[in-house]
């Protein structure tokens, strides 16, 4: 299933934040959305699920399977949220309810969206925990978020997002709050899930290293507009827009893709020290 965002405009309190964003996220592909803080990446992600702050106004189209999500009522949107489009947030320390067990948070929307009984939902939750490689799912399911490490929590958040078998996953800076050593694992998990389940993944990140490790397509945002979009290799190696070039130049210790022959080191890939292991 393809998620198509066209001419999306968002204004909050009278000032326009997105000025007409165009994006296409296709099934089985990871679409990276890059840009500096305040460029509108997160707002784009939130707009898809209708989670923008109170008092925001939207224009344009967000299309999924022939429906315009912007035209849906909250009730209709609640059928899409979690079931067709799921979201993973930046910081798993705050995006999981601290007072509910992992099992409860994994099963509550399954029971709501899929109408599963308690037993079936629990069995499926155990499968999901195994799928995101949480050790000892039987013990983990009755524990609380604070009993897990940051990387494990983000895996749990991903499992929660996948519980109702959504077609689209929006991951908003899913590795930013994590230790560098566990980032690679989470990214590899996302990539694998995308390939195995045919998910369309919108990966929002400011980290071009993360982007180059997993994204198939890359879009670069600046001041509420997508300034460049294309296949990863093309955008990261031969950026056409000066802003993309500036972003690449800003990477500490990275010398690829600047377009300046004297600074280029051929053959070096733009990653967090290589492909995630």
């Amino acid at each position: 299933m393809t998620l198509t965002i066209s001419a999306l405009k968002v204004s909050i309190g009278g000032s326009e934040i997105l000025h007409g964003v165009d994006l296409e996220v296709r099934a089985g592909r990871v679409h990276g959305l890059a840009g500096e803080s305040g460029s509108g990446k997160t707002m784009t992600g939130l707009a898809v699920l209708g989670l923008l702050p109170h008092g925001s106004r939207t224009a344009g189209r967000i299309e999924l399977a022939g429906r315009d999500l912007l035209g849906l009522s909250t009730k209709e949107l609640n059928v899409v949220r979690g079931a067709e489009i799921a979201m993973v947030f930046q910081d798993p320390a705050t995006s999981l309810h601290p007072m509910l067990t992992v099992g409860r948070q994994l099963t509550e929307h399954m029971r709501h969206h899929l109408g599963l009984g308690a037993k079936e939902a629990r069995a499926r939750a155990l499968e999901l925990l195994a799928k995101v490689r949480i050790p000892g799912p039987e013990a983990a399911i009755d524990r609380y978020p604070h009993q897990f490490s940051g990387g494990m929590r983000q895996r749990i958040a991903i499992a929660i997002a996948l519980a109702c078998e959504p077609k689209v996953l929006i991951a908003d800076e899913p590795t930013t709050a994590l230790d560098v050593t566990v980032q690679a694992g989470v990214l590899r998990l996302l990539r694998g899930l995308c390939d195995d389940l045919g998910l369309a993944v919108l990966l929002v990140t400011h980290d071009l290293g993360v982007m180059s490790a997993v994204a198939d397509e890359v879009s670069v945002m600046k001041d509420g507009l997508v300034v460049e979009t294309g296949p990863r290799g093309q955008v990261l190696r031969e950026p056409r827009h000066p802003y993309t070039r500036a972003l690449l130049d800003a990477l500490p210790g990275e010398t690829v893709g600047t377009g300046t022959p004297g600074r280029e080191t051929p053959g070096q890939d733009l990653t967090l020290g290589g492909e995630p292991r």
């Binding site: 699920l49 909250t74 979201m87 930046q90």
Partner: peptide
């Protein structure tokens, strides 16, 4: 964040209100 995450899960409003807002 977990209230926004609950909305992203598509839970009904009253569940979000009592389980995710009032209880904490």
């Amino acid at each position: 964040d977990y209230v926004r995450a609950a909305r992203a899960k598509g839970l009904p409003g009253r569940v979000i209100l009592f389980r995710y807002v009032v209880r904490p």
